[in-house]
Every structure is written in structure tokens, then in C-alpha cells.
């Protein structure tokens, strides 16, 4: 991008943060996995399948966190013309999609022993499935144009449209779920879950979060370098 969108300062900050984020993520993963797999007791009802929660819940949280930060970045790019916002959105999208896919996979794996089937049209799982399509749509749209700037602009608009629709989709899926399947299959204990389970969950959530920051910084650096390559190639052309 042109010198008026000088990312040099951002790169300095990012490179400073990167090792810390990576280190924190490694530590949290180690601690989380140890506590989650070894130290915490199996659930009296679900047995050991409850350990899947330590992956499923952080993944669900990260899929929603990533999409909302992308929507904010899209607003920043469209409204305040912040040049780096759309680089962030494009960098974060694959991560968000990965988290969503992971959430769906572990969701069905977690529920399968109880439900007896691999997929249940539970309200939350369905909303995450729709979110997954929103991610795929964004990624496909951003790369569908020859001019990357054009792709980013269209992607930003789609993110804002998506952000407006996410609550509507969530509400309509909940509404639809109550119409067709009165009792939801199982209710996670929420704040009442045992402390021994809460700690690994928080650690794994922190691990996912710091992992996200570390990798998104890498992807932003790659995005900026790719943009620079495109500018140079255009410069060569004439």
C-alpha cells in the first residue's frame, strides 16, 4: 500500500508481540491438555466424553470472536478507511473457518455417544453451521476478483451484511428449533461446572486465543508482503 498507509510501525509492534503470543499459547496448551486429560475427573453423567468440551467450547468461542472482530475490521475499513483493517479481516478468515469446522466436528463427536447419531439439528450447532457458510462465502468472495483491493472492498461489505444478519439467523434458528424439537438434548452446566473442569476450560480458551493472535500476525505479514509484491509487479508492467 502507499506510504500513507505505512504499516512499518504495525510490523514493529506485531513482531514484538509474536514471540509472546506464541509462547503463551504453547504454555497454555501444555497446561490445559495436562489438566483436561489427566488431572480433571470424568463427568458423572457423560464419562470421559466431557473432555471433548475442552476443545469444543474454546473453538466455538473463537469462531464467534473471529467473525465479530472481522466485522469490526470491515466497518473500520469501510467507514474510517483504515488501510490495515481489511488485511486483518482477510488474514483472520481462514482461522475463523478452521475454528468453526473444529467446533462442528467436536460438537458431533461429543454428542454422538448420547444422541446415537452423528448430527442433531440442535439450535447452536445449526447456527455454527450457518456461520461456517458465512466464512466460506467471505473467503470465496475476497479471492474472486483479479484486483485484490476490489475483493477486499466487496468482502468488507459482505461482512457488514453478515454481521447484521447473524443475530437474525441465530434468533430464527432458535425459533425454528423450538418449533420442531422441544427439548434441547443436553444443557452444559454453565457456571455451576466443577472448578476442576473450569480451569482446563479457561486454560484451553486462553491457548486458543493466543494461538489465534500469533497465527493472525503471521498471516497479516504475509498479506502485506503479497500486497507489496503486487505493487512491484504492477510497477514492472509499465
Amino acid at each position: 500500500m502507499h506510504r500513507f498507509a505505512n504499516p512499518a510501525r504495525f510490523l514493529k509492534i506485531a513482531n514484538a508481540v509474536l514471540p509472546w503470543a506464541a509462547g503463551l499459547s504453547a504454555v497454555c496448551f501444555a497446561a490445559g491438555l495436562y489438566l483436561g486429560l489427566f488431572a480433571s475427573p470424568p463427568d458423572y453423567q457423560q464419562g470421559d466424553t466431557v473432555r471433548i468440551m475442552y476443545i469444543h467450547v474454546p473453538a466455538a468461542w473463537m469462531s464467534m470472536f473471529t467473525y465479530s472482530t472481522m466485522a469490526v475490521a470491515a466497518a473500520a475499513a469501510l467507514v474510517w478507511k483504515h488501510p490495515l483493517a481489511e488485511v486483518y479481516a482477510k488474514a483472520a478468515a481462514p482461522l475463523g473457518a478452521g475454528f468453526t469446522a473444529l467446533c462442528l466436528l467436536t460438537g458431533s463427536l461429543w454428542g454422538a455417544p448420547m444422541w446415537g447419531t452423528w448430527w442433531v439439528w440442535d439450535a447452536r450447532l445449526t447456527s455454527v453451521l450457518v456461520l461456517f457458510f458465512l466464512y466460506l462465502g467471505y473467503m470465496a468472495l475476497v479471492d474472486a476478483f483479479d484486483d485484490p483491493a476490489r475483493g477486499n472492498k466487496a468482502g468488507n461489505i459482505l461482512l457488514l451484511v453478515g454481521a447484521v444478519n447473524v443475530p437474525i439467523i441465530k434468533f430464527s434458528v432458535e425459533w425454528w428449533n423450538t418449533l420442531h424439537q422441544p427439548a434441547s438434548v443436553f444443557r452444559l452446566g454453565g457456571p455451576t461446572i466443577a472448578a476442576s473442569m473450569l480451569w482446563p476450560l479457561l486454560l484451553m480458551a486462553a491457548a486458543f486465543q493466543s494461538y489465534f493472535f500469533a497465527v493472525v500476525i503471521l498471516r497479516i505479514r504475509a498479506g502485506l508482503a503479497a500486497r507489496r509484491v503486487q505493487t512491484l509487479r504492477l510497477g514492472q508492467a509499465n
Partner: peptide, 27 residues
């Protein structure tokens, strides 16, 4: 895993594949 080995380990396996995969692809 109390008889649920397949479910628990495939979940952690999937997590490893997704997270490490994204990291490697990005790098």
C-alpha cells in the same frame, strides 16, 4: 477414556490437525 476413546481421541486429533495445519499453511 472410559470406553469413549474413539470420540475423545479423534476430537483431540482433529484439533491438532486443524491448529497445526493452519499454522503450517500460514508459515
Amino acid at each position: 477414556m472410559g470406553g469413549y476413546a474413539a470420540y475423545v481421541w479423534s476430537s483431540y486429533g482433529a484439533a491438532a490437525v486443524v491448529l497445526v495445519g493452519l499454522l503450517v499453511l500460514s508459515l
